[in-house]
Design a protein around this nucleic acid. Structure first.
Lengths: 129, 129
DNA sequence: GCGCAAGGTTTACATATGTAGTCGCCATGA
DNA sequence: TCATGGCGACTACATATGTAAACCTTGCGC
């Protein structure tokens, strides 16, 4: 059941993740573009964004496509893969690998609203079909 | 705000979490006891466990109950709370706060086995009752 | 042509984290 | 009573992470 991951495990950090989100939302953006999207919210400077972009490229999480004298950054890993990996990590670490346990916990701890429950039910019905 | 400040937000790290699990499983254990449980698996030395225990006490995640010249460590926070917090953090960060989205993702990414699905369905039915 | 602005690269530095050694105290058995 | 071993406290140190400044290169507008 191994995911098609071959990077030795270059974890993406919290701060880096914020940058990834911007690029998943819209690929091929410059450092300035990314900053435009997050610097305000996170109180970062352009320099910080540059650093994070570099580190992400090094980690193989981003691709830097040359565009004249600058780079257009694009995710090298799909959001789905990342989200899946993180989710799995959580489930493994806290729920003994049982996703059902996670759902159970969410439900019991009232982290799920009635609407959530309805949505999940609908979803399950669909999956069963 | 004295030393024994109660910070609900003091993050517990991966390594520290391993120690917490041992104590959640069985409270009031000494450093040596805890080591007994994890040193082998994680390849840690007793010293490492001691450091982690100290940090956890500082963070307010553990209580050190004096027992003669040593301490019996006990979780100061319930596992439920920790698990809930971590789950919520993940949901917020990756699923825009929608727990249902998480479940949807798990389902779609086949992280849920048929049995998981069945369990969840049963669970939902119960919650509806 | 030339300086400036835009971009990436290097360097920086504090705090966090993983992992562990060392110090000093003291209860206990020889 | 005295050496020992067990124990927490203090110290250590490399790497990771957050955050950013300094620096270097080069295309462009004037």
């Amino acid at each position: 059941m191994s995911t098609s991951e071959e990077h030795p495990g270059e974890r993406i950090t919290e701060a880096e993740h914020a940058v990834m989100e911007v690029l998943w939302d819209r690929p091929r953006q410059t450092a300035a573009d990314v900053c435009e999207e997050v610097c305000a919210q996170r109180g970062w400077s352009l320099a910080t964004v540059k650093t994070l972009l570099s580190r992400l490229v090094q980690k193989g999480a981003l691709l830097a496509e040359p565009d004249g004298r600058r780079f257009l950054y694009t995710p090298a890993i799909a959001r789905e893969a990342y989200v899946g990996g993180e989710s799995r990590r959580l489930v493994d670490r806290l729920f003994g690998g049982s996703a059902a346990s996670l759902v159970a916990h969410l439900a019991e701890s009232e982290a799920l609203t009635d609407q959530d429950l309805a949505e999940i039910e609908a979803l399950l019905k669909e999956l069963r079909a």
